[in-house]
């Protein structure tokens, strides 16, 4: 069972999220209201996943994010999903830079209400994947002088879905193409972004990182 520490300063939403997690078979070991308590909770118990709001007391700026980055440095392999009130590429890139960009998710806070999608995203992250909010991806793909300008429309679509943490099979289903076509698209994307062909499966994450870094 996945052990989760939940950090959110609003009591109602914290309880609601704890309910969602329990309903889907996560074990909520701690539900806290600020960044300090979050760090303490992870230190004292075994934790697989941290779900935290970025904006928390006392400063109401990026306490949750800083705590998340600190925790990932201290506990390699810890999966982290941060919930953001608004889109900040710095947040996303700081997070993706930590721990090699694996087991990490950056979602707009409003996404939690689509319960099934939210839980899927959590599971992807726990499984070592990367999830970036589709609004972030949408905005990045529209940015001028983007390294992704060389990508075709279909390749952008595929990259967006990769960034959201979907597998090749899932992408193929969504785009109504064969999995082989998706593999080909991903190969083209990696080549165009200059990501060297290695045996490392992490290349997909590198692709997401490449454009986040380039555009921040």
């Amino acid at each position: 069972m996945t052990r989760v520490v939940l950090a959110e300063d609003g009591v109602l939403l914290r309880e609601g999220l704890a309910g969602v997690l329990a309903r889907f078979g996560f074990e909520v070991v701690a539900a806290v209201g600020d960044a300090g308590a979050l760090i303490d909770a992870v230190r004292t118990g075994e934790t697989d996943l941290v779900v935290t709001d970025i904006r928390m007391p006392p400063g109401f700026s990026d306490e949750g994010l800083r705590a998340a980055v600190e925790l990932r440095d201290r506990h390699p392999g810890l999966a982290v999903v941060v919930l953001s009130q608004y889109i900040q590429y710095e947040y996303a890139s700081a997070l993706l830079d930590s721990g090699g960009g694996r087991s990490v998710g950056y979602l707009l806070k409003d996404r939690v209400v689509d319960v099934a999608d939210f839980v899927t995203a959590l599971r992807t992250v726990v499984g070592g994947g990367t999830v970036v909010d589709h609004e972030v991806v949408r905005q990045l793909l529209r940015r001028p002088r983007d390294p992704l300008a060389t990508l075709s429309a279909r390749e952008r679509e595929v990259l967006a879905l990769v960034a959201e943490g979907h597998s090749n099979a899932a992408i193929a289903r969504r785009l109504f193409v064969t999995e082989a076509a998706v593999v080909k698209h991903v190969g083209n994307i990696l080549a165009k972004l200059g990501i060297p062909p290695t045996e490392d499966a992490n290349r997909r994450v590198l692709a997401v990182l490449a454009y986040l870094r380039a555009t921040v």
């Binding site: 609003g10 109602l12 939403l13 309880e15 609601g16 999220l17 309910g19 969602v20 309903r23 806070k109 409003d110 939690v112 209400v113 689509d114 319960v115």
Partner: peptide
């Protein structure tokens, strides 16, 4: 905050 919580409950 309340609306988010309410929507979450409806989603559940």
């Amino acid at each position: 905050h309340r609306l988010t919580s309410l929507t979450l409950q409806l989603g559940m």
